[in-house]
Design a protein around this nucleic acid. Sequence first.
DNA 1: ACCCTAGAGATTGTTCAACAATCCTGCAAG
DNA 2: CTTGCAGGATTGTTGAACAATCTCTAGGGT
Lengths: 251, 251
Amino acid sequence: MCGVGDDAEVGAGQRTDDEGRQAWLRGVAADVARLDRSSSAERAADILRRSITEGALPPGAQLSELELTEVLEVSRNTLREAFRLLTHEGLLVYKLHRGVFVPELDEHDVVDLYRLRRVLEVDVVRRLGERDPELPATRLEPLLDDVEAAEAAALAERWPAVGTANMRFHEHLIGLADSARMNAVTGRLLAELRLVFHVIATPQELHEPYIARNRGLFELLEARKYEQAAADLHQYLLDSEQGLLDAFRAH
Amino acid sequence: MCGVGDDAEVGAGQRTDDEGRQAWLRGVAADVARLDRSSSAERAADILRRSITEGALPPGAQLSELELTEVLEVSRNTLREAFRLLTHEGLLVYKLHRGVFVPELDEHDVVDLYRLRRVLEVDVVRRLGERDPELPATRLEPLLDDVEAAEAAALAERWPAVGTANMRFHEHLIGLADSARMNAVTGRLLAELRLVFHVIATPQELHEPYIARNRGLFELLEARKYEQAAADLHQYLLDSEQGLLDAFRAH
DNA sequence: ACCCTAGAGATTGTTCAACAATCCTGCAAG
DNA sequence: CTTGCAGGATTGTTGAACAATCTCTAGGGT
């Protein structure tokens, strides 16, 4: 999920026939990379990642090496490699000679995370207008999918699912910039944010207001009103930050 | 260098006597942390990091496990842990079942890196004006130190040293935002950029023009002309990017 | 009753040796 | 020229062992 297929980057720009072939090649390459990845360590990391992001391992929890080697059926060395992977995604922290823990983020971290979010997301949207080939409509499709997924999950009152759909929306938003490094930063950023969500008791109030705002944002992008979209997004993120901080102070 | 002493953050603001003591305590704590940290793995990573940033290990080079365990006198597992550390700093890349390599960045990467640089640095400078307590003059001292270091190194015609001083300048610039995550992102970003410098044959033309511009930037900050500083910095980074790309195309 | 110190037990940090899986090289066959 | 197949080298993973450090508890001193 983090840095597997980043080095493909084919230098496009040929006949449409070749382009189709290139796309197919990239697809296959991505599939292969997904199958034969570092296996044990990454597989263990995948399981732990899900446990953390889904809240099974709450912030503050310690991860015992001995215990997890038995559960995950990997050796201690491999497990420690998985720990390192997650550490650099911000999902675990090492305390020397004491072990690994799920980090406990505080209000200061929320402010820090949103500072970075605002800078990146607002800039991406604002500069969408200056792109050389006008943004093709197909690029916006993933965003629409996320909006609709959030709306559907809200109808079913599955609020955690709403949260992940909202996050995917912002991930895809950053993706429009075609910047591998922005994607990486955003990936880690949202992972940390997810950590914050789990100490909040009321997921509904936290996520529900932003379903409609995401759709509004999508429509502005579709209409190519990038400046207004950027302004909206800026206020959106300020509100979201404030909501999180308020929920935090309610312990 | 990446995630060791991030959790210190002493809540400053006392009498000058206490402040001196606090600073001293922090210094000692940092030294201790530097000594007894994860030891083997981080120590090995330090050596490798220097070898890479100083160009002894050029982009494209493969790092053999067997060879390095003998040179660094650590076990293979510890060495692999060091590899992981450097991988997430962007100084190494893993290729499954093939080993670790010093990444070879291309023009596309340069564009990507500068895209992110511009967003972050320009935003930091622009928002310096809105801070609650006006920026104390002492916060700018590290920047002045870097400017003077670059000027001194230029007089001695030590161009690589000029490059590192310039980078420190930008690192300290980002530091003014007091954002742990921006600092982390910038650290990795500049490390990757340093990688690019090593494939360039002419360090002088690359670094010299920016010594004076750094001083100009510093003076604008000192005069609290943040908007103009941001505009200057934006153009500065565009020029720097163009210079790098030109040097690149000269093979 | 309180503080400090020492030591036992548990956990992590590191090393070593071995085996399995995969990649690269060169060569022979079609 | 391409394809298929050894053989050697390198990486991926394991398990056991020992050293270093932390935590917790019990005991002595004030």
